[in-house]
Structure formats: C-alpha cells, structure tokens
Amino acid sequence: MAMIEFKNVEKYYDKFHALKNINLKVEAGEVVVIIGPSGSGKSTLIRTINGLEQVNEGQLLVTNFDLADKKTNIDKIRKNVGMVFQHFNLYENKTVLENIMLAPRLVLKRDEAENKKIALDLLETVGLADKAQSYPRMLSGGQSQRIAIARSLAMKPKALLFDEPTSALDPETIDDVLKVMKDIAKNEGITMIVVTHEMGFAREVADRVVFMADGQILEDDTTAEFFDNPKEERAKKFLSKIIKH
C-alpha cells in the first residue's frame, strides 16, 4: 500500500490545465524530490496532497483516503501529513513554543506535560531551544523555517510535504534548514516530498527525483539515474542551467 498515489489526476484553474495526467506513487519512508522550472505545476501538485488544492479528475490516495472524493474528511489526512511552506506561515499571535504545541493539544489531545516535553525536544533538535518564548516576528527566515519544521514534526506525521522551503531564505541560513531536513530524511523514516531547487540536497538524500514541466511529469527516476543519465531533453537542459548557477 503506497503512502501517496496519484492515478490519472487532472487539475484545472478555470481553463488553465495545471496538472496533466499525473501518475505518481510514493511508498512509505521514501524521499522524493520534485524539480522543474517555475510554473511547471510542482507547487500545485504538492498542495493537492493535503487538500489545499482540489483535484478535478482521477484518484489521489493519501494514507488510504481518496482526496478526489468530496466526502473524504480532509482533517483526518492533515493529521498525518504535515506541510512546510515557502513563507513559513507560523502563527503570528503565538510564541514559538505555542506554535509547536497548539495542534497536538487541539487535534491529538496530547497530555500537556508530554506535549511540552516533545515541543522542547524538537526545539533542541532544530537548534533553537533558546527561542521558545519568542514570537515569529522576532525570528530570521531560517529560524522561522526550522520552527515550522518542528511544528510539523510535533504532530508525528507519516508524511511531510515541503513546498520550496528554502526559496525565501538568505543564502547563509539555507544550510541550517537543509541540515534539519537531511536529518529527518535519514533518521525519522518519514515519507518526504520536497519541491526544491537545491540539487545538492536532492543528490544527498532523495531516493527519487521527479522532473515536471508544463503540468506534466516528464521524468521519474532514481536519484543517481536522474542526475547522471537524464533521458528527457528538457530535464537535461534544466540540469545544465541549474548546475551552472
């Protein structure tokens, strides 16, 4: 049973065909990186997985629930599938600690003492134990993103979605965030889908790379195969450009 499975998924924004015949299977524990030029549908694709975008046709199975079915209770999926955004989306009105503790308290009804312990441990893990009482506006981008990752991890998700997690960060803070992500990929056994332009990250931790363009999946290969021996002309072009930078 795959963790996430797209079967002939189509997605439209009015007349614009955003996702074209998507077929993709992600097994539990797999780390999949999605790359491609901007406007290729990467973000749309990842946002359909936790229902932030609706799919119009086909089947989208996530932890056994079909997201294309309107009767599916989306909150049940979101409990198990976390998301990390480009712009963090930390709760502006809550402290860092409260950001991490809120959802486990409300959704999982986790015991308060245990909840706090888990939150503080996570802050330790992402190297920001001293920021527990800070508000998001007092944090740098890199710090915010690490808190956002800790917030997602607090739910003990089966899968984590990363939507360009380092694209809005200063270059010097990107490494801290990537390090946290690599640790998760290597140690936690959580299924990860990552939309990113960080090729070093993809090479190091991804099991597979999916290349998208114009709303289609053009290539879906093991990491080594994709980087060393890309088949599609557009993937070759994209790689040569991105590696030159």
């Binding site: 979101r78 998301m83 963090f88 989306n89 502006e92 809120l102 959802a103 959704v107 739910m155």
Partner: peptide, 23 residues
C-alpha cells in the same frame, strides 16, 4: 490576515473553526 495563516493552521491539522478562533 495573511491567508498563509489559515493554510498553515489547516495543514497542521486544525479544523476551520479551531483555526478561526485560535489563529
């Protein structure tokens, strides 16, 4: 309020009402 706040809260597992009242 930044729409990202609602998306963040919903992705975190909160229901619409929980997100509304807490965030």
């Amino acid at each position: 309020v930044d729409p990202g706040q609602m998306e963040g809260a919903r992705s975190n597992g909160l229901t619409f009402m929980q997100a509304m009242f807490h965030i």
